[in-house]
Design a protein around this nucleic acid. Structure first.
Length: 1009
RNA sequence: GCGGGAGUGUCGGAGUGGUCAAACGAGCAGGACUUAAGAUCCUGUGGGUUAGUCCCUGCGCAGGUUCGAAUCCUGUCUCCCGCACCA
């Protein structure tokens, strides 16, 4: 039991610190800053337990240590206070989430203050505070502007118990992260996403720059982002679903000629002719009608174009200047189309004075590419200079290499009136390019079928109208009813979809299947199947009796044969059955085959990531409202910044589905664009959004006009030491990196990473050995520990048991050891009268300061504590300087008692004192050595005395001459209560048992009577 | 299946190529103090051998590299964590 009234001491100093605001900081020029941060907690109604205390103690020790080292330390605390438990409480206990949350927070604050943590409470940040989530909404709007926040229909993880969509990170083994017994369902819903994949490469590559992150976290992130190098190879599938093909520009005369079926005589006439040819081949076409005098201006042309029915299934064909017009038009209208075919396109039409730059500025940017499924450029190898230049510029800008058709002279001179070109065009139009991703381009000759994912959104369109449509769709819907987890366990299954794909390396036709084992979200959702060299494809081929073709032979082992293979050979080897690539190694073939495909414009080196876009929509109340309005006329309209924040309505009904949908008055809103009636988005954001930037708000927590002041953030950021649990490795710790990069690109930050130093504390287990958690009922509460032992004891115990990055178990027995030490310290210092120091004490002190400083810096708290204890054990008579240095070193671990003891003779706060400095010159290792020898001698004597079983009458120690001064006979005489006679080994006066000859350096001989 | 981490006294854990494995704490044992208990203080605490020193043996198991291995390598067993049909 405690001998001192620790609770009174704790309370006294906690109040003093708060009253004098000693931990409140501001930006100070000329003082080095240090930002220490623990991951802020979700304020649970259950309050905090020793597990939390462990986390905060680790941070507090560091913050106090750095403060004493002279840094301007920013050490704030806040609450991730939006989230499901508050809402669930609303349903169960009929208490409003806000009330629940506010109550939980005030309880947390009280508890944290009770731990003596040195937070700057003036910077408190709470995410459920309107003044905080306003800026979540503001960031969302910036993301919306930049196309990072977007909406799409997607198969989503839906938890029927939470009644909400879950992020991938919240699905654990097919089950909800909050409900271990609840299967996650797959639903197709329109959802909001953050395009985190835009930053995939940077998020991946910069992991290596996170020098002071634990290696395992870095590996987990790398694996999660999942970078693989490979090739996108363009296979093609027949595509009948083309709405219309528009060949631009037909005038009235052309129309008449066309009616008579006459072949064209010049360029102008060629266009209607090709239209006719395509119609003959069953492709419906449309074309704008141009005035009789063929002298088109872009604006006239555009007017005609407006009347055409152009949609996502359209293929647009433009020739010469018409091609340029099409590019410009697509850029302006942002129309989505299936395919754009440019035939010898020209940027400027001869009669229209459109400077190249003007047109480029207009529309040839990457944005039009996003709206076009595929772009094909044809050119003949003998065009005139003007066309050649245009084609070069356009294909560079669009990053599409032109397909050159060999002939002499102008494109049309050769192709006009022939049947080959319409045939070629038809093929190009009616085939759908389908790139597939592979890391094994070397196996491409072994492709015997293709497999498309059953969840692929374009699959229904692909099979529409085929004989197999019914069978395919019933297979798909059968899978839809099955839980993802069970699909994972199922055998490979599939159905032929009635289509064939063309292998670009050898033009072979291979059947396309739909399969249950292909991921829709990875790559293009379709794979080339090489049964001989991929285990999944092998199983599938065996089941459906699809041919297997070996194209890789092992370098050493026996040759493979299709008939005897029992499983796929997946290793690298030597190519066979692969045309001109035979005899190459896989490594070389991957490069050569990629090159060859690239030359044909059928393949491209690609990097694929496993990382998926971040689904942020939640059908829940207690989250940040998404600042979007849906208007029948204007579509998706972002809330204007001046209308922020969108406040959560307080009066809602809980129970069924999304409570926000029950507040009709809140949903109803005027469209900011057209002022007509519109509706608010009722989804709220994932709470990981809130925690992705809170560390920035701490730098300027009360700013009403801006998210934060750039200068203040520049002063404090990056976080110099971040502390938190491993469980956030692939969640929060990726998201906050993503946010940092996005805000940097907005120009608000000048750093790439939020922190370069991360420390993962271990998990605290309860006395029963399981993770300390309310649900296991094994929580130990800080208040109780404080009452029994004092909180300083608890803090000391938490960090002295083991290295703080390791898991540890709370046991009451162990705490008592820490209490004993603290009691001794208190007892010693309250009675202390300063004496003198001596060189041995000084040596010990300086060595301890040196080592403890280094240990704390590197989070070896356990070792630091041991060294501080050892120093204390050495104390008998000490001077003021030593006493103060000792208290200072103990202070980060035990702030209250050290503050109390310090004030016995000081008026300042030890919390603000400077860390003791050591003097290397005063460290004398010989002292230590001597003490060790003396100690060893004592042990030896004790051992012999014990074996003798009688009290010694006289002890004779034989030492080598120069070691004589090392020993302290008085100390020995005191302990053994008899005469202790030291004799040097070269001058022996008494040695009845001839022991003296055993004396060695550092090991004296002994004789006891 | 893939990736990562860990196996050291009775227990929690230090030590990751070198003059000493088990620091420090807990437990246990003995002693001091006390009428007694508790608290406190002192001492001991892997095994064998020995009046201490010396020596042998010990870091999951089995090998190997080295003048020298708890530490590096190979195989193997057990436990923990993360990912998981990623083409």
């Amino acid at each position: 039991m405690a001998r001192f009234n620790f609770q009174a001491i704790e309370k006294k100093w906690q109040q003093e610190w708060e009253k004098k605001k000693i931990f409140v900081v501001s930006e100070k020029k000329g003082k080095k800053k240090f930002y220490v941060l623990e991951m802020f907690p979700y304020p649970s109604a259950y309050g905090l337990h020793m597990g939390h205390a462990f986390n905060y103690t680790i941070g507090d020790i560091y913050a106090r240590f750095m403060r004493m080292q002279g840094y301007n330390v920013l050490y704030p605390m806040g609450y991730d206070s939006l989230g499901l438990p508050a809402e669930n409480a609303a349903i169960k206990e009929k208490i409003h989430p806000k009330k629940y949350t506010d109550r939980a927070i005030s309880n947390f604050i009280k508890q944290q203050k009770g731990l003596g943590i040195s937070y700057d409470w003036s910077r408190l940040v709470m995410t459920h505070d309107l003044s905080y989530y306003k800026w979540d909404q503001w960031i969302f709007l910036q993301m919306f502007k930049k196309g990072i926040a977007y909406r799409k229909k997607a198969p989503v993880n839906y938890c029927p118990r939470c009644k909400t969509v879950l992020a991938n990170e919240q699905v654990i083994n097919g089950k909800c992260w909050r409900h271990e017994d609840t299967e996650v369902e797959i639903k197709q819903l329109e959802q909001w996403f953050f395009k985190i994949t835009k930053y995939a490469s940077e998020l991946y590559d910069k992991i290596d720059k996170l020098k002071d992150w634990p290696e395992d976290i870095k590996l987990m992130q790398k694996y999660w982002i999942g970078k693989s190098h490979g090739v996108d190879i363009d296979f093609e599938i027949e595509d009948k679903d083309i709405n219309c093909v528009v060949v631009h520009g037909v005038n009235k005369k052309d129309k008449e000629k066309l009616a008579r079926g006459e072949p064209p005589q010049n360029e102008r006439h060629w266009i209607p002719w090709i239209k006719k040819q395509l119609e003959k081949k069953g492709i419906k076409t449309e074309a704008p009608l141009m005035p009789n005098n063929w002298n088109p201006k872009y604006n006239d042309w555009k007017k005609e174009f407006k009347n055409l029915n152009i949609n996502e299934n359209s293929v647009l064909i433009g020739h010469s200047g018409g091609g340029g017009f099409l590019i410009r038009w697509l850029g302006e209208t942002k129309k989505r189309i299936k395919k754009l075919i440019l035939i010898a396109p020209a940027i400027a039409y001869a009669k229209e004075k459109t400077p190249f730059e003007d047109l480029l500025r207009f529309k040839i940017d990457n944005k039009i590419k996003e709206n076009i499924g595929e772009i094909i450029i044809f050119v003949s190898n003998n065009e005139n200079e003007s066309i050649r230049k245009s084609v070069r510029i356009i294909s560079e800008k669009l990053d599409v290499p032109p397909t050159t058709l060999k002939d002499k002279g102008h494109f049309l001179e050769k192709h006009m009136g022939t049947q080959e070109f319409p045939e070629l065009l038809k093929e190009v139009i009616s085939r759908k390019k389908w790139p597939i991703f592979t890391t094994r381009a070397d196996t491409i000759f072994g492709v015997t079928f293709m497999v498309i994912s059953a969840q692929h959104p374009e699959l229904p369109e692909l099979v529409k109208g085929t004989k197999q449509e019914k069978e395919v769709m019933s297979f798909v819907s059968k899978l839809r009813g099955i839980k993802q987890e069970d699909i994972d366990k199922m055998d490979k299954e599939g159905v032929f979809i009635g289509k064939y794909a063309i292998n670009p390396i050898n033009n072979e036709k291979v059947p396309v299947y739909v399969g249950n084992f292909v991921l829709a979200e990875y790559g293009s959702g379709m794979v080339m199947a090489v049964p001989a060299h991929d285990q999944r494809d092998f199983e599938f081929a065996k089941k459906y009796k699809i041919p297997i073709r070996v194209v890789i032979q092992p370098k050493k082992d026996k040759k493979l044969s299709e008939k005897t293979m029992k499983q796929a050979y997946v290793d690298y080897g030597i190519l066979v059955n692969s045309g001109k690539f035979n005899k190459m190694t896989s490594e070389k073939a991957i490069i050569e085959i990629s090159k060859s495909l690239q030359q044909k414009n059928k393949g491209k080196h690609t990097i694929q990531y496993k990382l998926k876009d971040w689904l942020i929509s939640r059908q829940r109340y207690w989250g940040t409202p998404i600042p979007i309005i849906y208007c029948d006329k204007c579509g998706i309209v972002p809330v204007p910044e001046k209308d922020l924040p969108i406040k959560l309505p307080e009066k809602v009904k809980f129970g069924k589905g999304n409570p926000l949908e029950t507040v009709k008055t809140w949903i109803k809103v005027k469209c900011p664009k057209c002022k007509k009636d519109a509706k608010r988005e009722t989804d709220t954001m994932d709470t990981f959004v809130n925690s992705s930037w809170y560390f920035l708000r701490y730098c300027d927590p009360k700013n009403k006009n801006k998210i934060f002041d750039k200068k203040k953030v520049k002063y404090w950021m990056p976080i110099d030491q971040y502390i938190g649990g491993k469980e956030h490795a692939t969640g929060h710790l990726i998201y906050f990196r993503f946010y940092t990069k996005f805000l940097r690109d907005l120009g608000l930050l000048n750093i790439d990473e939020p922190t370069l130093k991360l420390f993962n504390q271990g998990v605290l287990h309860g006395p029963d050995g399981r993770k300390m958690s309310k649900s296991y009922g094994n929580v130990v509460l800080p208040e109780e520990v404080s009452k029994k032992y004092g909180i300083d004891t608890a803090r000391l115990f938490l960090v002295s048991m083991a290295s703080p990055d390791k898991d540890l178990k709370w046991g009451d027995k162990g705490v008592e050891g820490s209490l004993r030490f603290i009691n001794r310290v208190m007892g010693y210092f309250t009675k202390l009268k300063f004496g003198k120091s001596d060189p041995r004490l000084e040596s010990k002190l300086n060595k301890t300061i040196k080592e403890v400083t280094q240990d704390i810096k590197e989070f070896r708290y356990n070792l630091a504590v041991i060294k501080i204890r050892k120093l204390f054990d050495y104390f008998t008579e000490i001077d003021k300087k030593t006493a103060e240095a000792f208290l200072k070193m103990l202070h980060p671990f035990c702030p209250h008692i050290t503050e109390e003891l310090w004030h016995q003779w000081n008026k300042t706060f030890i919390s603000l004192e400077s860390w003791p400095k050591y003097n290397e010159k005063k460290i004398n290792l010989a002292f230590e050595k001597e003490e060790e020898i003396q100690e060893k001698l004592k042990q030896d004597i004790r051992q012999i005395v014990k074996i003798l079983g009688t009290r010694p009458k006289g002890i004779y120690v034989y030492v080598i001459p120069k070691e004589l001064k090392v020993y302290n006979p008085k100390e020995l005489e005191k302990e053994f209560n008899c005469k202790v006679d030291f004799q040097t080994s070269n001058k022996i006066t008494y040695d009845p048992k001839k022991k003296a000859k055993k004396a060695k350096p550092g090991k004296p001989a002994i004789y006891i009577e």
